[in-house]
């Protein structure tokens, strides 16, 4: 029995680590939704695009080389240099800022005051467009992403837990670093939104667009800012997922896993995105471990969605959905 219990503990820990990655994707959704009321379907593709760009820059790949070769009959593929990981991350973050500006300038500026459904449709279009651009720029093959994060099983935890309980926990180093990075990212985001002038303006815009305009806050600037931040969060999520399972186009599907996370946590809450991610991560691992064998396994594919469905029925605003302040 203690053997079983320890095993369950390990499953929970691994679930928490997986949950961190879900939370990272969900975080990007929440940021944009809170500030502009846009449900950004393209968040997952942004993570993919960021990861593709990062790998491309690191390997010195020539963007659009396939088209260039097809048109001019050349044989281009690489510049032949390698960019250090940190510099490449900074450059990719820059690309995401430019992307945010383009999106704001050419899509959402023209859709001010439109129905939410129209904005949502625009982001669906954006998602497919970006996926196509990513494919054209960097090619569609699966790429390996290694930014120097430690990989493999953490020996120290394995040995320590083995000595303590007689059972070694298998925990991936990558998951640990993802957790640390996520904690820092969230802490930085909270510091930014609570204690800086732009952060305050961001929250003001989230509360009341009109009033924010009236005190002289530029909505365009705030929206570029928030898309840039969401782009950066997507980049971090892309790095983590890419390092774990390679940069491939199925990466954009993790966006779908973020939906149940959002339904659990509430669409407007940053802590909600994190707790929701952790609950889904732990829940699906634990469910697979406990119930999976009885129903023939593969529960991880649907567990999150069923849980989200239950939440939709019983608590539609999610666990941490923004309290609607109502004065009587």
């Amino acid at each position: 029995m203690p053997e079983q219990f320890l095993f369950a503990m390990e499953v929970i820990l691994n679930g928490l680590m997986a949950g961190v990655l879900y939370a990272l994707v969900a975080l990007g959704f929440v940021l944009i939704f809170k500030a502009s009321g846009i449900f950004n379907y393209a968040q997952g593709v942004m993570a993919l695009f960021a990861a593709l760009t990062l790998v491309g820059i690191m390997d010195g790949q020539i963007p659009f080389s396939h088209i260039i070769n097809a048109i001019f009959g050349t044989e281009l593929h690489h510049f032949g240099w390698h960019v250090p990981a940190l510099l490449a991350i900074i450059l990719t973050a820059g690309v995401m800022v430019v992307f945010a500006w383009l999106v704001q300038r050419y899509i959402f500026r023209h859709l001010v005051n439109q129905e939410p459904i129209i904005l949502f449709m625009a982001t669906i279009g954006l998602a497919y467009f970006l996926e196509g651009v990513g494919d054209l720029m960097w090619g569609s093959d699966i790429k390996k992403l290694d930014v120097g994060l430690p990989q493999g099983i953490n020996d120290w935890i394995d040995v320590t837990t083995f000595e303590a309980f007689g059972y070694g926990f298998f925990i991936d180093n990558l998951d640990i670093s993802a957790t640390i990075v996520a904690v820092f990212l969230v802490a930085a985001l909270i510091m930014f939104s609570q204690y800086t002038k732009q952060g305050r303006a961001l929250r003001a815009v989230a509360d009341d667009h009109q009033a924010a305009l009236s005190v002289g806050i530029s909505l365009n600037f705030i929206w570029v800012l928030v898309w840039s931040i969401a782009g950066f969060v997507a980049l971090v999520a892309g790095i983590m997922w890419g390092a774990k399972s390679g940069v491939q186009f199925s990466l954009s599907l993790i966006a779908l896993k973020a939906l149940p996370v959002l339904m659990l946590g509430g669409f407007t809450s940053i802590p909600g995105a994190i707790v929701g991610g952790l609950i889904i991560g732990v829940g699906e691992k634990l469910f697979e471990f406990l119930i999976g064998p009885m129903v023939g396994g593969a529960t991880e594919n649907w567990f999150a969605y069923v849980l989200a469905l239950l939440f939709l029925v019983f608590r539609p605003q999610g666990l941490f959905g923004e309290k609607i302040i109502e004065r009587v």
Partner: peptide, 22 residues
């Protein structure tokens, strides 16, 4: 604006500070 339009989730002081944004 008509109807006050305060930033509901910001504190009173934060509301005042947003006025100094520009």
């Amino acid at each position: 604006m008509e109807g006050r339009h305060c930033f509901e989730h910001l504190t009173v002081e934060e509301n005042l500070m947003t006025g100094a944004y520009t």
